[in-house]
Amino acid sequence: MAQLSKPMVKRPFSLRQQDARVAWLLLVPSLIVLLGVTFWPILYTFILSFQNAPSGINQVRTFVGLGNYLEMLKDTGFWETIGRTMYFTVASVSVELILGLAVAQLIHSRPWGWKFLRFSLIIPWAVPTIVNGSMWRWIYSADFGALNGVLMQLGLIKHYIPWLTFPNLAMPLVIVADVWHMMPFVALILQAALAGLPAELDEAASVDGANAWQRFWKIRFPLLRPAILVALIARTVDAFRVFDIVYILTNGGPASKTMTITYLTYLNSFSYGKQGIGAALSFLISFFTIAMAIIYIRVLYRPEEN
């Protein structure tokens, strides 16, 4: 306020404006970097998706309009891959959500050793996906795998089973590996949300005669909806773009039965040198993930309940 009492001096900018200018100047390098590493690659990929763009130095690129998109949308292999990816996404996210909720509730009820349980949850999640994929490849190994070893010890199988060679079993096995890795993420989000709920509501319901299931389903679950929405969107987007665990575990086989849409994009972009098709596939992946996120928000987001 002392500044106001000073004699008026003709200045081109107020102090606030001057500070804003300095702030913008200081932000310019970061903004340039951000534009360079986020906006420009997206724009470049978008342009690429309308071109016939073979890999290579000084390769001639030709504008094909929506040709790359139409080529993919007309390809039955593309829709098979989308179907397979949806199967992976729905199955893995559903199991992760159900198990995650159960584990979160278990921790919330604070049984003996709950702190150790909460701590140990972090371990599978902290393991890099590549390491997780390698670990499960060894577990499923037909010749040396732990799964066969355990089942043999228990007398449940007489011969070692080559698990990943069965076309209809390979994807469920990939899903198991993914659930082991990512379920803790969902559990931790939901456990944190449960811990933030007011205990009075639960106690009041208990006094009113609600049993444990009713207290969970009628009180805690509706209040958990925003946290479930966050977990669902984060996991769905992630699961739909699954690549590394498939690459390590199965290479998309057997007979492409674990080939997901991101793997197909990778193959087109880098193995087959079809950068235009790869770029179009990238935007189709974005379209599908955004569509799923919108559906979740429409169905689950109810701000009036919060």
Partner: peptide
């Protein structure tokens, strides 16, 4: 060996 369906050359060696 049915595991050949998922085997690369290193797995054959092993």
């Amino acid at each position: 060996n049915p595991t050949s369906i998922t085997a690369d050359e290193n797995a054959v060696r092993d």
